[in-house]
Structure formats: C-alpha cells, structure tokens
Amino acid sequence: MATVKLKGNEVKLSGNEINVGDKAPEATVVATDLSEKKVGGAQEKVQMIVVVPSLDTPVCATETRKFNESAANIEGVDVTVVSMDLPFASKRFCSTEGVENLTVASDFRNKEFGEKYGVLIEEGPLAGILARAIFIIGKDGTVVYKQLVPEITEEPNYDEAIEAAKAAANK
C-alpha cells in the first residue's frame, strides 16, 4: 500500500490502491447542494478527480482555486474536487472564493471514494481524511494518470496534471 508524508513523517493510507491502467471504480460523493455525484467508471467525459485533505487549509484552497481557473476550461473534461469537508463548508468556500467552474464534493458520508481509490489516511493527526492526489480517468473508465503527492502539505504538479487531462480529452 502506498504511503505519503505529513511534514516529513510517513502516513499510511488504506483502501484499494488504484494505478494507471486500472479500471477506475465508481464511487458516490456528495455535492455542495447535497445531491449525489458518481465519479469513476466510464462516462461521457474525461474525469479529473482532484483529491484534497480539507478546503480549510491554505494549500487545498490554493489548489482548488487554480484548478477552477485552469482545468475547468479544458473541453471535454469534468473536474471534481473531493475532500472530507461537509457540503455546507464546501458551499461556503465556493461562494467566498468564487469557485464555480468545477464540482466540489465530499466523501464524508461513506468514505467510499477514499477506500476505493486507496487515499484514505489511516493513522496520525489526519486519520479519516483524504491524502492529496489527482486521478484522470478516460471516457472508457481507465485511469490514465495518477499523481499521489508525496508530501501532503505540498501542492501537486499542476502543469503535468493539466497536460494529462488535455491529452486524455483529445483521444
């Protein structure tokens, strides 16, 4: 099972590790309006799933704003940010930050996404929330890109993820 670090200390993740080439499992997350959204599996558009620990942290807030500006404009790509934040807090964040080009959703209800994608933090001070990661899923439901950020407190490689999403959308 993959591990990541929090301020240099190793953190164990639980769930099923998903890698490039694997079929992306379907999971249900909860949008800010409390509706359910299915992520993973085969869909009409390429999916970019941006996984963050909490929108209430500066790194996660910055990451969500950046993807709202850049990735949401890629034709043929559906962008969803997933955290464990309650939908009410996510809605407040989106209205305060002007995030309206992507879906912000929560895995709080069943922790289904975290378990199915192997990004649920199992131990330490952040136990029960999600590690920072990005998954890009082709229309056929296959994972074509994965970035598990090795240090939870650091931002992902935005350019690499955006290029991978563009490439998948142009196939």
Rank of each mutant, 00 (worst) to 15 (best):
M1Q: 13
T3R: 15
T3G: 09
L6A: 04
K7R: 15
K7D: 10
G8N: 05
G8F: 02
G8K: 10
N9T: 11
E10C: 08
K12H: 10
L13K: 09
S14C: 13
G15L: 07
N16M: 00
I18M: 14
N19Y: 13
N19F: 13
G21E: 12
G21M: 15
D22H: 11
D22G: 10
K23I: 12
K23S: 13
A24L: 04
A24S: 08
E26K: 15
A27M: 10
A27T: 11
V29S: 02
A31R: 15
T32M: 12
D33E: 09
K38D: 00
G40S: 10
Q43G: 08
E44S: 14
K45L: 09
V46K: 03
Q47T: 09
I49Q: 07
I49V: 14
V51D: 02
V52M: 10
S54L: 10
L55H: 01
L55E: 08
D56M: 11
T57H: 11
P58G: 09
T62I: 07
T62H: 05
T62D: 00
T64W: 04
F67H: 06
N68I: 06
N68S: 04
E69L: 07
S70E: 11
S70P: 02
S70L: 14
A71E: 10
A72L: 07
T80D: 00
V81M: 09
M84R: 09
D85K: 02
F88L: 15
K91S: 12
F93I: 10
C94A: 14
C94K: 08
S95P: 01
T96L: 12
V99T: 05
E100A: 03
N101I: 09
L102T: 04
V104Y: 03
A105N: 06
S106C: 08
D107A: 12
R109H: 07
R109S: 12
E112P: 00
E115G: 11
K116D: 02
E122D: 10
E123R: 04
P125H: 08
L126T: 05
A127Q: 06
G128Q: 14
G128W: 11
I129S: 06
I129N: 05
L130A: 08
A131I: 01
R132Q: 03
R132M: 04
F135A: 05
I137W: 06
I137V: 15
K139C: 11
K139Y: 14
G141A: 07
V143M: 10
K146D: 00
L148V: 00
L148G: 00
V149C: 08
P150L: 01
P150F: 02
E151N: 05
E154S: 14
E154T: 11
E154W: 01
D159M: 07
I162R: 15
E163S: 15
A165P: 01
A168K: 08
A168C: 06
A169H: 04
A169Y: 01
K171H: 12
